[in-house]
Write a protein that binds this DNA or RNA. Structure first.
Lengths: 172, 172
DNA sequence: TTGGAAAGTCAACAAGGCTGTCCTATCAAG
DNA sequence: CTTGATAGGACAGCCTTGTTGACTTTCCAA
């Protein structure tokens, strides 16, 4: 404990960044940063009687129009019942359209309406503003490291999912 | 929109990392990573009928023994009523001690009991394991970038708080 | 001695997780 | 054509953790 500074040193490699203290700093940074990260869209949502869960649904439907309820479920990692409550209000409020599946009529393919697109844009823009500022202040190298650590922190299956979904459908 | 790749380029600086697409990737990485980040302690907590809020209280009391309820409130950013509910169960269960303040007898100074220290250690160790692996896999440079971006993302007041609280009380 | 800060408590409410159960529509295989 | 499995939806009820608002007690400092 006294010599935690010298813990686990390998050939010529300085592992000071792996001390418990450094890890704790990272843990706290995650907590504070995530709180800020969600704060901006939360304020917009509060006015509209929506919550974070609605934002998440809008985000992933926007990113992959036509995705099924089951896929969305998998991405969000919540129960069907929990998602359904959120989805129902979004559909009632005409932000999301649920269309019968093309290949399989049991499935429902989810799309944003114009209203949905517009709210999604408003929410994600608020989030991007903060992200953009942070990125700019930190610089490209820091951003690369940021992304690397976050990826390394994910559960393996989530990471695969995340890495697989690189594409956003372009307007063409 | 077509030429988003060339958006905002300055003298010799490549700002590709600031495209909306890159920002979106970062936003999603935060979502997925944070979910993983909280998953490990959440599992331990579920068994004990505690929640994330209990963990957070334990964490910050451990980090700064003797801090007052008001300070803790400020750090956590929740209401007195919300914290109080959590704090009460922790005190009832003999994980936290609330002592009348020394300088100001209105204040309550919070300390972990041995039981509290032991649970805190268990929880934070679970979180550190993941963090340590991620750090190791990403390397020191990535970690530096990670921390830089997270700090840049915080609200200014939070960031000051965060930067000010570098020290953990050493066993002496 | 008195105003105000710190702390605590009660009540009520909402979001968004969860489990469990049940139902319908549909597909696919036998 | 039946039958089992899958996709989706709905309802009920529970929990945690956040919120507001109102009120009390304690106690410091002017």
């Amino acid at each position: 404990m006294r010599d935690k500074a010298r813990a686990q040193t390998t050939v010529g490699e300085d592992l000071l960044f792996l001390t418990d203290d450094q890890l704790r700093r990272g843990i706290e940074a995650m907590f504070f940063a995530y709180r800020a990260f969600t704060a901006d869209p939360d304020m917009i949502l509060a006015d509209l009687d929506y919550g974070r869960a609605h934002h998440r649904a809008l985000h992933f439907i926007n990113r992959e129009p036509g995705l099924t309820v089951t896929s969305l479920l998998a991405v969000l990692g919540v129960t069907k019942q929990s998602l359904n409550r959120v989805l129902r209000t979004l559909i009632e409020d005409d932000l999301v359209q649920s269309r019968v599946g093309i290949r399989d009529r049991r499935e429902r393919q989810l799309h944003l309406t114009e209203k949905g697109v517009s709210l999604e844009r408003r929410l994600s823009e608020a989030q991007r503003v903060r992200m953009r500022t942070a990125y700019r202040n930190a610089g490209p190298q820091a951003v690369a490291g940021f992304r690397q650590v976050l990826e390394a922190m994910m559960d393996p299956e989530t990471r695969s999912q995340y890495q697989a979904m690189k594409d956003l459908p372009e307007e063409r």
